[in-house]
Design a protein around this nucleic acid. Structure first.
Length: 830
RNA sequence: GCCCCGAUAGCCCAAUGGCAGAGGCAGAGGACUUAAAAUCCUCCCAGUGUGGGUUCGACCCCCACUCGGGGCACCA
């Protein structure tokens, strides 16, 4: 630590950030100001969590922003006297590591652990307020054994199951993908066009939780960004309607269709079944249409998702030469097969009401099928305009439903169908079960043994973790089947139940399994007896504040919510939403677009840190604008941040009073500025307006500079109070500078634990305020009044003011609005 | 095509329905200096995308539109 003489020597030197960084890091290592959960810690808890990184290289600008923002929140609550747990770990399984391993021809662990070491060192230098004692790696067996344990628990509960299904297949990665990992028909990892493949795969039954995932979002209202809640609602996509039974000529069983518009049942003019469904194949079998049908199915199989998603795609289909009977009027309806009906939604069959559904109308017009209007909406005839009338109206041509509006007709027809045993109300979801198996090496092995006699047998718990076979000797290149299959010594085992020869499941789990419960692990990160201890969970969870990118709005957050509910049902925890508050930070872009090497606009974090120092980069990130907005690095000025920090730092060398001086004896004007800044900055931080909080600190720095140079002077206690407040507020964004200031002010480290000064409410009120006097909304005069003046007194003063009296001469006063102590508005006719 | 968010000074951004400017960047001038840098001081700049409406009063609320960003997109 510097001597006072050393301080003097440095007094007028420029602020040397490199020196200061090197100076304080070892001190903080020693003091561990952010260690959470000491046994004797009586402070109330606060769990602040940043989304954990993937170790794909060194930290980049995006990390710098995210961690700067998360750190403001974590450090603020520490200053406010909370026992803050702010942990970090690494999310390591997945394709980047595996692809790097293939390229380098080595074990993915090597690349992974190298990158972790790099990132960890960068985080330490970046002065993140992480609790380093809680770190874990998801690729360590000590972690992923609990993925396996959870998988087995889900399997026991029927929530993990295998089925044959047409799944998303990425030809680039040579693996299946979850629905959530297909973005606009492309693989989210490698941008290959995703195709369909019929495979037997593992699923988690997230659809069982669709209603709870939807309904529990009510409690997140106002605490999560609306955008994320909307995206999740859309993704789950609950729709309500009815299933209706249609008798089929020549078939013993009726076909059930799903519709959201049972009120238009009389308007059904044909039926459509999904061309790729078993139902379609069965209906076509034996008819003269069968040959054409098979050809049609082959044709649509060749279409990629991209083709299917094209908006102007013409409708295609084929008449199956079969007929259905409309249950309400006995009409004979043609049954068609088409790819615009999805096999895995609803029942895979629909009644087509072309007058009131655009897709059905497009199809009817293409195939020359009849259109019948059964809802009078006042719009033109759909069969002429080609535009279906989908809105509300009066039901016509519909027997007993005639004259009703949409809602009444739906209620009436549902009741009638139910009574006649022909249908009942139903719900459907866009959400599909979560496909969790992957045909790749670098993931958690699925802990299932396949036995010819016993079927799927879970690996006994006492044999967990089931570790990955050594990568050496395995060909990791993607080839459509798991590389684990080649590890014969690993694959061939005895059935734990019957002892017969059996084989291990060779697929690995989707890496999103790892991150779906990791936030539960931090409080128990060193516990090797269970995934998490109930006592720790009850102490720390749920997460009070989660910070991360909006890219995870659906995937990770939905899966985490699902896991939380499942674990709740298992009695392992007692809350139903894992993340109480969520902040989505924006991205860091350059010249308006995402940074990339190929675009040539990549800014290297390490370069920025070398040029401007950690504090200036953190400050620039936080001050750039509202946290949820993108930061355009070409708009921010790290050198401006350096300038401000230097200016603040210099104040600390100018203070002439001693630590502990009685602030109440200080200059009132500056004291008011200090307390207002503390008050406003605190509110701004709590409402995520960090840029505003910094503006308040800048104001106080300016006011203090002025007070020292030409006001109450450096010896006044108020200047010390102000600079100490600045150091504490600045500690949220500029840990090095503020620590240095704190020392120069005569205090011992760490400023991070100094405590947010208590705001004196009496210093927040002004003795007098300026009230404005308006006539017809235009400002005519300003007067100084007491802040506690009454409306009546303010009005009296305003009306008596000479300027106003003059203005009002000859006018008729219509109304006077007084809003003490801010303004009086006199309305006159002019 | 549908839904959501945004638009304030040359730029980034502030403003419980009540004086449009908190803060910063950039710019201009000055002080200090042999000079430069650094520092300090002072100053400049818009009436809030467009058109209506509500109100005593609108950046703020309502309607329509323009532009920008994001999400969803055959889910019956």
């Amino acid at each position: 630590m510097s001597t006072s003489q050393g301080n003097e020597e440095r007094e007028h030197a420029a602020y040397d950030f490199a020196y200061v960084q090197e100076k304080w890091l070892p001190v903080w290592d020693e003091l561990t100001p952010f260690k959470s959960g000491r046994a004797d810690d009586a402070r109330p808890k606060k769990y602040v969590l940043d989304m954990f990184p993937y170790p794909s290289g060194d930290l980049h600008m995006g990390h710098a922003e995210a961690y700067a923002l998360g750190d403001v929140i974590a450090r603020y609550w520490v200053q406010k006297g909370f026992n803050v747990m702010h942990p970090i770990g690494w999310d390591e399984f997945g394709l980047p590591a595996e692809n790097a391993a293939i390229k380098r021809n080595e074990d993915p662990r090597i690349w992974t652990y190298e990158n972790i070491a790099t990132q960890k060192a960068s985080m330490r230098r970046y002065a993140c307020s992480f609790d380093w004692d809680r770190v874990f790696n998801t690729c360590d067996p000590e972690y992923y054994r609990w993925n396996q344990w959870l998988f087995l628990k889900l399997h026991e509960r029927g929530l993990a199951y295998r089925k044959d299904s047409a799944v998303n297949w990425c030809p680039g990665c040579q693996t299946v993908l979850a629905n959530e990992q297909v973005v606009a028909g492309l693989c989210e990892r490698c941008d290959s066009a995703v195709t369909k493949k019929k495979l037997n795969q593992w699923y988690f039954k997230i659809t069982d939780y669709a209603d709870r995932l939807l309904d529990d979002m009510q409690q997140l209202e106002g605490l999560w960004p609306d955008k994320v809640l909307t995206m999740q609602r859309n993704w789950i996509g609950r729709s309500t309607g009815a299933n209706v039974q249609f008798v089929i000529e020549g078939r013993s069983e009726p076909i059930s269709i799903y519709t959201t518009r049972p009120d238009t049942l009389y308007g059904a003019t044909f039926m459509v079944v999904a061309a790729d469904s078993e139902l379609a194949a069965e209906l076509a079998a034996g008819t003269t249409a069968d040959k054409d049908f098979k050809a049609y199915v082959e044709k649509i199989k060749a279409d990629s998702d991209i083709d299917r998603l094209a908006t102007d795609r013409p409708k295609s289909g084929l008449f199956l030469e079969r007929y259905a009977i409309n249950p309400v009027n006995g009409e004979k309806l043609q049954i068609w097969a088409s790819d615009y009906v999805l096999a895995d939604y609803g029942t895979g069959a629909i009644m087509a009401v072309p007058a009131h559904d655009q897709r059905d109308l497009d199809f009817a017009r293409a195939m020359k099928l009849p259109v019948r209007v059964v809802v009078e909406t006042g719009e033109e005839d759909p069969s002429e305009t080609g535009i279906a009338t989908v809105g509300d109206g009066t039901v016509i041509n519909s027997g007993s439903l005639n004259g009703l509006n949409k809602a009444a007709a739906i209620a009436a027809i549902n009741a009638q169908l139910e009574k006649d045993g022909l249908g009942k109300s139903a719900r459907n979801y866009r959400l599909r079960d979560w496909l969790v198996s992957r045909q790749r090496y670098w993931g958690t092995p699925i802990p299932i043994i396949h036995c010819e006699k016993c079927g799927e047998v879970g690996v006994p718990e006492n044999q967990l973790p089931l570790t990955l076979p050594d990568a050496a000797g395995l060909d990791l290149k993607p080839k459509g089947t798991s590389p684990l299959g080649a590890a014969t010594a690993w694959v061939n085992v005895k059935c734990p139940k019957c002892g017969a020869d059996a084989k291990r499941d060779t697929d690995t789990m989707d890496t999103f399994v790892d991150s779906s419960w990791y936030f539960l692990r931090y409080p128990s990160s060193t516990n090797n007896d269970e995934p998490f201890a109930r006592k720790d969970i009850d102490t720390w969870l749920p997460v009070d504040q989660y910070v991360g990118g909006v890219t995870h709005a659906i995937l990770h957050l939905l899966y985490s919510r699902f896991f939380t509910k499942v674990l709740g049902d298992m009695g392992m925890l007692s809350f139903n939403e894992p993340f109480t508050r969520l902040l989505n930070q924006g991205m860091v872009v350059m010249d308006g677009s995402a940074m990339s090497k190929s675009r040539g606009n990549l800014v290297r974090l390490s370069d920025e840190l070398a040029h401007h120092g950690v504090d200036a980069i953190r400050l620039s990130m936080v001050f750039a604008g509202p946290p949820e907005d993108d930061v355009d690095w070409s708009d921010v000025s790290p050198s401006g941040s350096v300038k401000f920090l230097t200016r603040a730092w210099r104040l600390s060398g100018d203070i002439a009073s001693a630590p502990g001086v009685d602030f109440t004896k200080g200059d009132v004007t500056l004291r008011k500025a200090t307390h207002k800044a503390l008050n406003d900055a605190g509110i701004a931080v709590e409402t995520f307006r960090f840029n505003v909080a910094i503006a308040r600190v800048m104001e106080l720095v300016n006011a203090t500079r002025k007070a020292i140079d030409s006001g109450c002077g450096p010896a006044d206690p108020a200047t010390r109070e102000a600079v100490e407040a600045i150091a504490i507020m600045l500690s949220l964004v500029a840990p090095y500078t503020s620590e240095e200031m704190w020392e120069r002010l005569g205090h011992k480290p760490a400023v991070a634990r100094a405590g947010w000064p208590t705001v004196d409410p009496s210093l927040l009120v002004d003795e007098s305020v300026v009230a404005i006097i308006q006539i017809n909304g235009k400002i005519k005069e300003r007067i100084e009044v007491s802040p506690s003046i009454s409306d009546a007194d303010l009005e009296k003063q305003a009306m008596a003011h000479p300027v106003i009296v003059e203005e009002l001469k000859g006018a008729t006063i219509l109304k006077v609005i007084a809003r003490a102590p801010k303004l009086v508005n006199i309305v006159i006719n002019s």
